[in-house]
Design a protein around this nucleic acid. Structure first.
Lengths: 195, 195, 195, 195
DNA sequence: TATGAATGAGGTTTCATTCAT
DNA sequence: GATGAATGAAACCTCATTCAT
């Protein structure tokens, strides 16, 4: 097997197993088995278990960032459309990974490199939204960006937790989130206030 | 020592260490040391490590829920005030626990009892917001509730990650979050759009 | 409760549990529970777990020896009858205890006092048979005694192992064992040899 | 070291230590030390302590059964000779193992696989004697077989308990046991009765 | 480069025993 | 005498990592 392919096989297996069972409950031997190689071989490609986990996470997060950047750069959309597409991308990404939730929650506890990476990733993702919003001239774009991601992330939770969360529900949430972000709930609230 | 006190001492030590280092990186012997008792004594109060973690989590979450419920029931405030007080309560809670973030992220991976509890906790917390909003007659109060919690939770992340996040910054976020939730960012966006 | 009664209650519980599950698989706390007393109380009556086991064994073995001695001393029987009654006593004793076999097999491994006691018990029991046989003027009565006990003990194994070993089967073995001991199997063998 | 050799080394060490001190008083680390390997290595060859004990027992019992079967199949001997050779084999076997008595008495209490194996072993051994006797046309060969084994087993006890039991004493017992089994003690008894 | 047998540190849990009340 | 909460030694077993082949 090509060394690149072998590395990919290990990352694939790591993604699958870490994602299903979490870092601590996944054994290196299981990853080797699933990748179809010997245990020792993993150590030719990754320094240790933490490094493998970080690599798995990095690969996944990088893809995620790229998909988000593509939206930002697309000049054919106006702000509102971008927000919708961005939301759809965000939720779809996790929707497709809903069987691998442990990758985001059950991570090694004390690996500085991973912590550093995750910090940068969150920031990077936030920058993308921030820039998108800054184009619209929003003051405090950082706080807005953080908030929008927060809304989406919480709907993501429902995807991961609710067993029969489907594609239509996802689309409903996309519309809901972007609409709330732009218009707030004040009008609905106000109208009912006075009846 | 009173048995109740001893149980509390164990929970305190567990809260501190699990919160600092996460479930897997915390040893029962460390908890015993910090609680000032013998290792075996923990097992008189908790069946095993998972049960202790669950108890620690439960105690903390229950307090959190109570504080949130108190806001809901306070009839002296209007909706907007409630949203602000709720946001302040949420962020302050995590602000005070910013040294113990691992309690929320680094949990045991496969304990069904804990998973069940966390699910119920998240739902319970969502219900509180939902009811608060339902009083205002919002349609789809669940989606609004989820979204508001999402906004707050993401700002919470900044509290946990940014080393010099202070009390004023917290208050700023409180105002920002509640305002965004009610009014959206559309007006700011619109006004700048046309300049 | 009378101290004597309490001691008996502990011995009874020990006999039951050690006999059912063996020395190592029986917990002192279980014995205390079954005896209806506190764990610590056992140590007022017995130095430690081994001593309790030894006491349980001793009590049981002493009763056994007494029943055997009674047969020896009974002058109303001839040798053959004594052998039969002795065999019946032996098998009946274990038959009644067939739920408590672990008392004889699963004993503590390295307690010198128990080892010494068991040695003496076996010898004592052997002496009784030896004397019985010596009255009949047998040469080498020790070897005969050992052999007779051996026959009975192996039939005892069947009692303990075979789930539906009943009273009639027991009586059959009694007759069989004593008859074999006196007459051997040579005649049966011989007769068939020549047919 | 060859894997087979390593497995044998573990079995040898297990045989020695289990036999000297019994199952519960033997530590896995001691077995590893004696086998000259690391603790964890044992678990590559045996699932757990019980499985190792069972394997040790099985190996020993199998050899024993083979030696007994060889006698049964030897057509050059008549019945009486076979009984003598069988007795010698039985006692010699335990004579050679007189330092390892705990293997037969101090076994794990609740391992179903071991219990099942021992049951089958006892039965198998009994069958061999039974067939041997059945060739002579004895009725009830099972009871006779059980009895003969019982006689031998009790003499075995003396081997294990008496420190200066030697080879001549063993041979004396062999002759004694086979003779008693064939002829009984009735004649000696009778003759002395009337003198 | 690839292997997988071997390692051994390390953690959870049990339970006989103690001793303050 | 009686209690039972507390102790802490001790042992099994796991699994990330190494290294001879």
């Amino acid at each position: 097997m090509d060394p690149i392919d072998k590395q990919e096989a290990i990352l694939d297996a790591g993604y699958h197993l870490f994602g299903m069972k979490g870092f601590y409950e996944t054994k290196m031997s299981e990853i080797a088995d699933e990748a179809g190689i010997a245990k020792g071989t993993i150590y030719l490609y990754f320094k240790n278990k933490e490094a493998l986990f970080t690599a798995v996470t990095r690969r996944d997060c990088d893809r995620f960032l790229q998909s988000a950047r593509a939206i930002l750069k697309d000049s054919s959309m106006n702000m509102q459309d971008k927000l919708i597409v961005f939301a759809r991308n965000h939720l779809t990404y996790y929707y497709e990974r809903r069987q691998h939730t442990k990758l985001f929650f059950m991570t090694p506890n004390n690996d500085p490199e991973l912590i550093e990476f995750m910090k940068r990733f969150l920031q990077e993702y936030m920058y993308i939204v921030q820039e998108m919003l800054a184009e619209g001239g929003l003051p405090d774009p950082e706080l807005y960006a953080v908030s929008y991601i927060g809304i989406l992330d919480r709907h993501k939770m429902d995807i991961m937790v609710k067993p029969n969360f489907g594609a239509e529900e996802l689309e409903k949430r996309v519309k809901f989130a972007s609409n709330l972000f732009i218009n707030g709930c004040g009008k609905e609230l106000a109208s009912s206030y006075f009846t």
